[in-house]
Simulated scan of single mutants.
Amino acid sequence: MNLFSSSTLSALEKGLYGASLQQRAISQNIANVDTPNYKAKKVNFQKVFDEALSNTRLQAKQTHEKHIAFNRSQGSSPVETIRQTAYNHNGNNVDVDLEMTELAKNQIYYNALIERVNGNFNSLQTVIRGGR
């Protein structure tokens, strides 16, 4: 039995991965706020979530290399570029107020996930110590 491979810990890990992708995208957007023709990036959490779920589903044994794989990864990046809008005269579409709001939301989400991970490890530590 592997103590660190629980489904809860795995889901938290995937959530942290998505939050870190979001953090990178927001940071790039803020850093390029004055870059001409820069288009804002956004993480599609639904795509990250779907990939996380597909990795935890039943795995089929492939008996021949020409058989179609049971669980195929989409292989596409969850980071998307927003091209439809242009807020500035230089073709840039980064809205700093929106990005700062998204940054704060993402930080709260990330901190909540970290607290849950710490809670899981604290519970494990309590069990190891014999309930003390």
Results as ranks from 00 to 15, higher is better:
H89F: 15
H64E: 12
A112H: 09
K41T: 07
Q125P: 00
L16T: 04
H89L: 15
L53P: 04
S10W: 01
A25K: 02
Y109I: 03
N93T: 03
V94C: 04
Q125H: 09
R57T: 13
F45Q: 05
K14Q: 09
Y38M: 04
I82M: 12
S77I: 04
S76K: 11
S10D: 08
V33G: 01
R129G: 06
E13G: 13
Q59K: 15
S73V: 06
V117T: 08
G91M: 05
N71H: 06
G119W: 00
L124H: 02
I114G: 01
T126A: 05
R132D: 06
E51S: 14
S5Q: 12
Q46I: 03
E65A: 09
T63A: 06
N88Y: 15
N90F: 07
S73K: 08
I30T: 03
D50G: 05
N71F: 00
N120K: 12
V33Y: 06
N92A: 06
A69N: 14
I114M: 08
I128T: 06
S7A: 12
R116E: 11
A86D: 04
S7P: 04
Q84C: 00
I82R: 09
G18H: 07
S10L: 05
T56Y: 02
N32C: 04
F45C: 03
I108H: 12
T81Q: 11
I114L: 12
T35G: 00
A112M: 13
L9W: 02
N71A: 10
G130E: 00
S76R: 13
A104K: 15
V127P: 01
G131M: 02
S5Y: 08
S7R: 14
F70A: 11
A19Y: 03
K41Y: 00
A86V: 02
Y109T: 05
Q84I: 07
Y38Q: 01
Q22A: 11
E13Y: 07
Y109A: 10
G119N: 14
I68W: 09
V94P: 00
Q125N: 12
A60W: 10
G75S: 06
A19S: 14
Q74N: 13
F70N: 10
L53E: 11
V79F: 05
M100E: 06
N88C: 01
